[in-house]
Computed example of a mutant assay.
Amino acid sequence: MIQSLARINAVMIKEIRQLSRDRITFGMVVMIPLIQLLLFGFAINTDVRNIPIAVVDQSQSAAGRILTESVRVTQVVDITERFATPQEAEQAIEEGLVRAALILPSDLTQRMMQGRELGQWIVDGSDTMISAAILGLQNMPLTDFDFEIKPQVHKTFEVALFYNPSQRSAVNIVPGLLGVILTMTMILFTSAAIVRERERGNLELLITTPIHSMELMVAKIVPYIFVGLIQVAIILGLGHFIFGVPINGALSQILLGTLLFIAASLTLGLVISTIASTQLQAMQMTVFILLPSILLSGFMFPYEAMPVSAQWISEVLPATHFMRLIRGIVLRGADLSELWRDSLWLGAFTIIGLMVASKRFKKSLD
């Protein structure tokens, strides 16, 4: 028994020393729970605030200005755009510039006197949490007016939910799930690509070939592009036929947008692969990237509800831009030209990632 305990103790000491020397693994042990705690404690917030909206005040009256201010001070919305016509506001919603628009008619003062609905909200209903927050303003009280307002016959505002009038969660979840699954699989596949070559002894063969570092990086990611496209077809196909998720955008736009994201995710995995020394380290670093990618992308929690610092982090991650891209194309029928900011970021991320990965990879064993 004493000898057995001594052997166990010797192996335990060896494992502890090995763990202390493995800086990446030790860092993941500390950082993963720390990041999770900070994300759930500060960044994740289900109380939706500061939703970007547009205002179309066709009345151009004092009553319209007071009503607009009354809506703003609720802190549920943040007025970021003003348009002259409802058509311009609808276009802004389709492009993702705003999530809703408040339309105030030209006869606003008469409507107040008659107790009629004062205006209309048009809302991007594809996000059920956003639409629920706007619906909460439907019967907001009006106390900032000097003249008497008759009791409302119905509601203060009429609400029109675009893209998901029935407020079904599947409509919002299925396109977002596409981003989550691609993030998990694409980064995981390529994060161990270079490390696996080194552990299997194949790196010596690569050194003797005339292939350049950039050529190797491109060759590593191209096969997995087809894997990603198969996953896209499965998720969108089943989502459409089983859950009735509408596909309002062109398939060519979905294909191009998805290819941009797959390429960005694969290059991120390659960068991880050039940093990690073992496949275990590569998996640990992948988990470290996956947590903020899923939690800060807007898949589960509204982007607008996050603090500004968390939004800055989320803007760096490809998953955030793809969430906007795929939901805009699939649900709102937008195209890449309208969502050019997110398309440009994914393209730039891919190019920079390939350059970093090829620069870090050296055809040598030291």
Rank of each mutant, 00 (worst) to 15 (best):
S169K: 06
W121I: 09
A305Q: 01
V287P: 00
L177M: 15
V227R: 04
D107M: 02
Q110I: 03
L205P: 02
V76S: 07
Y224G: 06
T185F: 14
A101K: 07
A170Q: 08
E81N: 06
L37T: 11
A192M: 15
L229E: 12
R82V: 15
M217A: 04
I230W: 02
L19K: 02
G244A: 01
Q167E: 09
I352M: 10
E95T: 09
Q284N: 13
D146I: 11
R17D: 10
M12S: 14
L268M: 11
S343L: 00
T85S: 14
M186K: 02
D146N: 15
S70G: 08
L142G: 06
V222E: 06
Q18C: 09
V218D: 02
P86F: 04
F40Y: 13
L5I: 11
L229T: 03
K220N: 13
L260W: 07
L255I: 07
V76Q: 13
K14C: 12
V227P: 13
S4V: 11
A219V: 01
E338W: 07
P165T: 01
I254C: 04
F42G: 00
V98T: 02
I16E: 08
G115D: 12
I329H: 06
L229C: 05
L19C: 10
L188P: 07
A160F: 05
V11C: 09
Q311I: 06
V218N: 06
D47R: 15
L206C: 04
Q75Y: 08
D22E: 14
V222M: 12
S166K: 14
H321A: 08
L67I: 12
A310R: 01
A100Q: 05
L118C: 07
T209M: 10
M12L: 15
S265N: 13
V330E: 04
V316K: 03
F322N: 00
Q91K: 08
F243A: 11
L270Q: 09
D22W: 06
Q120C: 03
L270H: 02
M113K: 11
N164S: 10
I32P: 03
V227K: 00
T183G: 12
D78L: 15
T185Q: 05
T286I: 08
R198K: 15
L295G: 03
F301S: 10
S59T: 11
I313E: 05
I149C: 07
M214D: 04
I329S: 03
H212F: 04
Q110N: 14
E148N: 12
L336P: 05
L203R: 05
R116Q: 15
M214L: 11
H240A: 12
G249N: 04
L104D: 05
